[in-house]
Design a binder for these strands. Structure first.
Lengths: 372, 372
DNA sequence: CAACTCGTTTTGAACGATCAATGACGGCAG
DNA sequence: CTGCCGTCATTGATCGTTCAAAACGAGTTG
């Protein structure tokens, strides 16, 4: 093989044909429909291809076949803590395995994303789209479906259960339920849920998992559901309130790793201030001296779980028990379904729900503090 | 505009021409060389383009012009803590502003990357490459230069100062020097450097920055340089040793955020065990008196700085002072230079070094502990 | 032995744009 | 009035591939 690359002089199907003593079309067939070519001719052609280092010119092929073998995917703001980074990796791999590549672009908003998509569509620059991060009143699926552009969503059509497009998603409820089960196994009974405000599809799904598991074990629910926008500070503040409440939980299941980190920080603060005494506490939070309880460190030994198994989870201490999404499997499934759509092998939309896995670390290792 | 997308019936240059009562080529000129078209004709053509929602078919244009308006960039393992994620975002934005898009792919190794590059080259699937994360004995620049493929590297050609290709990089030495200066301003004199083993271009560069700044201020160097592979555990272990040494530093400048996190953890451990030690000695009685020694815990209050301003830096506590690379500027410069190469406007390679900025957070807020 | 089939290979014609060269037109000098 | 020039607009050729249909040759069959 080899044959150094000399720009402007690359082998074409024509030169391969000459070299192998066949016609253009036979070379083309050897690559795209080998079964139509007699075996010995095939080997001869493939040898020539290999010898000249020939690879079909993408532009010419695209022009003729009206397809680009490119999929578009929007890069999402890194806020997710690397989740979509992992997904993009997996997506690129899965696509390349099947002869496709991924064109990634960034956009500041859904509208900006649609602008880019429109541009790519009109230019026939990509064959299909992968939508990530679906949310309530998401304009993208309808927009794409309306123009007949093939796409698959990573994420369910929240709020539109009847949506007729293909999607792949991870069963967040099951993930959270698994976290609760795990805590129950370790003896916990008062297990709180720290979630996002109601109305986000993903957040509500995860909450449902907590509710389901808690109900199944007849565990207490009252006063154990806390909600705030995603963020460490808010989570820490809620946790502080929780610790000061009459009967704090022994464990907190969080809707995200960031929230869980906030909980861990609040616990750490509390532990530190308990150790040192109220006079010496550093840090900005004002936790009124609610430490005159019966025992030492009221509830400061809560078990905590997060969601997404972001890089953060391994870096903090204690290591954060978290629900890990099977992003590689999601990506493969997305690609598989997308290509089925493109090749016309599928008419009905595919709707796939994959199961996440709980990654257990030290943050859930604490047994419940003794009940009084 | 508008004009719903009906697959297989998209407007072509031909239909726009008919609609505007001109010829194919005039439409083409209106888009690619407007100055060649009489103003009133131009407006007429543009109106037609807008009305039909025409955008030139990418494949056809690519075939004719032998260019794809695509740049390739390898996704790197997320290990970097999101740095390359940020870079990729910026790269996509910068490219799109100039009419290009980014094809991203993932590869497990440099060799795998070269395989993909070879594939993309032979297929004429992209116009140029962006190499990120250059390192010692990097096979990629030579390989690409050898086949005349246009590329720009993010990262200097470490170990090959004479390399004749274009690159853009961030002045790591200056970043670290800035961190040292900052610490000196705060009164520190014993400032350690926690780096990677010698031999990595990036690491050596950063070390040079420490050395330069320390020498400039005639600060002590002996025993203040520590090295280990990147990782929290190793950094923590080294820090522990440092604390136990006869004359520990009052500040540590780290080659990476991950290392800095290791230092913070070690300090935290030490602080906790000191506190506990105090408790053990005095039992459960009031231990406030134990803190009377100059008000500072011995050595456990070192200032720390990291490098890269990764998301981790904002999440830990104290917030990590870190050197932030101007990745957006790097991306823009990379694209600018790359396009100059592609358009033939540049013959000499460009070699650009950009300055990072120090982001100050609480980890460097501690003043040096009083000398004894 | 002509006709017909089947498997394989070849030939012409796109795909939709841009490049290169040519044509139409009016202004201006000889 | 002729010839030349510059500006704009047009036509034919081309990029490298795949599609559609036709040609080929060897077997089979009536």
């Amino acid at each position: 093989m080899a044959a150094a690359h000399i720009p402007g002089n690359r082998p074409t199907v024509e030169s391969v044909a000459r070299h192998a003593q066949v016609s253009r079309q036979t070379v083309s067939n050897a690559l795209n429909a080998p079964q139509r070519v007699r075996p010995d001719t095939l080997t001869r052609v493939l040898a020539a291809i290999d010898e000249l280092g020939y690879r079909p010119n993408a532009a010419a092929r695209n022009l003729r076949t009206q397809s680009t073998r490119l999929l578009a995917c929007r890069l999402l703001p890194a806020a997710g803590g690397g989740v979509l980074d992992r997904f993009l990796h997996a997506l690129c791999d899965a696509a390349r395995d099947r002869g496709y590549d991924v064109l990634s672009f960034s956009a500041a908003s859904d509208d900006a994303e649609l602008d880019v998509l429109q541009d790519l569509l009109r230019r026939t620059a990509v064959d299909a789209y992968v939508i990530a991060n679906t949310h309530h009143v998401d304009p993208r699926p309808g927009w794409l479906a309306g123009r007949g552009a093939p796409f698959v969503a990573f994420g369910r059509p929240w709020g539109e259960p009847g949506a007729a497009h293909s999607w792949v998603d991870v069963d967040g409820a099951a993930g959270v339920a698994a976290a609760v089960e795990h805590l129950v196994d370790r003896g916990h009974r008062r297990i709180a849920f720290l979630g996002w405000p109601e109305g986000s599809g993903v957040g509500d799904d995860r909450f449902a998992g907590w509710q389901r598991a808690v109900a199944a074990h007849r565990l207490p629910e009252r006063g154990l559901v806390l909600r705030a926008e995603d963020g460490m500070a808010a989570a820490a503040a809620l946790t502080a309130r929780l610790l000061d409440s009459g009967l704090p939980p022994t464990a907190v299941v969080c809707v995200s790793d960031v929230m869980a980190l906030g909980v861990l920080r609040a616990l750490d603060d509390r532990r530190a201030s308990d150790d040192r005494g109220a006079l010496d506490h550093r840090g900005a939070q004002d936790h009124r001296g609610a430490r005159d309880h019966r025992g030492v460190r009221p509830g400061a030994g809560m078990a905590v779980t997060g969601f997404d198994d972001s890089p953060l989870a391994t870096v903090v201490r204690p290591g954060l028990t978290s629900v890990r999404q099977p992003l590689e499997a999601v990506a493969e499934k997305v690609i598989e379904v997308l290509l089925e759509h493109l090749h016309g092998d599928r008419t009905a939309p595919a709707q796939v729900l994959l199961q996440p896995a709980l990654v257990v670390r030290d943050s859930s290792a604490l047994p419940p503090s003794a009940p009084e």
